[in-house]
Design a protein around this nucleic acid. Structure first.
Lengths: 207, 207
DNA sequence: CTCTTAATGGAACAGGAGTCCCGTTATGGC
DNA sequence: GCCATAACGGGACTCCTGTTCCATTAAGAG
């Protein structure tokens, strides 16, 4: 099938790995420049200095390629701040997201990747996994805040982190409203206020 | 150009209007079934019982067609509740969004439309306009709450409504987490808590 | 009702994305 | 270092998306 992406290739050394790296980079560039709907595997092959046949053989479809690209992106972790102050941590997270989404390469890339995921279950799964990893990386600072007694004990840390990103992505994808430091701060503060109010506690909703 | 969508057609009567209606419906069906990346204008023409040439002539590209579809969707307004209780209004709004996004036809359609908008400026603009209209429709109940003194006087009503939808769309498009009544309530309550805390006031952010 | 022409429909045509075949390269076991 | 073969590369081929041309239909003014 598509995206088998060689779960255990018989010969993963040198060349195969080089090809994958080159194609991943080329795919990212192509997506950032033209968007997903104009993604052409022949173009990716050219950019990567790789045979067109190779790209079709290993990834089959554009969605298959994007799914593997997401796995590749998930592999590289991003450093996270941990100031010991939840508000500052959340604001740092929000600013990081804003910086990523407004970056001339990353922004269009994220848009393209999300667009690709809307049409293919396998890519959707890869995208979900990517965000699950990123969210889990930041959940730690919420956990610490709960331990320090700043938030209700049964607060769901993942839910708080999601609440920070959500308005920023909503702006990027749906409303088109500006993404800047002010909106980042607002997103972080809104998530914090809701968390303190106990909205993100498991089991019961605040009544 | 694309999407001229006949700003002032010289002969908009009967047939032209019928064709547009049929094509809009067919485009919505096709998008909901196959997603944007597999949208074929010839297929849309067949579904609408219309000549392929007609579709290409009037809308040119798939993104042009989606842009017009968004304008068409923006024209139909959705009734809004106004119970006089902000929490209930926001929860009703959240439940409406969840019901829409989980609907077997509407959900995939919204995904497809957002995917289309990521690749084309004209479609992006149409999508932004669509959400601007929908958000403005619901801003009224927040305004009323401000008047009643339930929220700080300089609260931005649009920001509150956006805050309700954002986590739901984030789930739909990015994380893939479930969308149900519980998440709807949570989204509404989170927005309310943040609004009460004064996060959505204009000018200054809560310090 | 008649006439002009905007708008549509059918069919042939062109370009490009994706497939297939087979020769070439270089990995990894011996 | 040598060999079997996994993996890659080039080019011809196919099919489908999108274009063009011209005949046909019907809107709307008089």
């Amino acid at each position: 099938m598509a995206t088998d992406a060689d779960p255990r290739p018989t010969r993963p050394g040198g060349r195969t790995a080089r090809v994958r790296e080159a194609v991943m980079r080329a795919a990212g560039d192509a997506l950032a420049e033209h968007g997903f709907d104009r993604l052409d595997l022949a173009d990716v092959a050219r950019r990567a200095d790789v045979g067109k046949t190779t790209v079709y053989r290993r990834w089959s479809t554009t969605t298959g390629l994007v799914a593997d690209l997401l796995a590749h992106m998930a592999e590289e972790s991003v450093a996270r701040t941990d100031t010991g102050n939840l508000r500052d941590d959340l604001r740092a997270n929000a600013r990081l997201v804003v910086r990523t989404l407004t970056d001339p390469r990353q922004g269009p890339l994220f848009k393209a990747v999300i667009a690709a995921a809307t049409g293919d279950p396998r890519t959707t799964e890869a995208l979900n996994r990517f965000y699950a990893i990123r969210i889990a990386e930041w959940a730690g600072c919420v956990d610490a805040a709960v331990t320090r007694g700043e938030l209700p004990t049964d607060t769901d840390p993942h839910e708080v982190i999601r609440a920070v990103s959500a308005p920023l992505y909503y702006r990027l994808l749906a409303t088109g409203d500006p993404l800047d430091d002010t909106t980042a701060t607002q997103a972080a503060d809104a998530a914090l206020a809701a968390a303190i109010a106990g909205v993100f506690t498991t089991g019961t909703t605040s009544q």
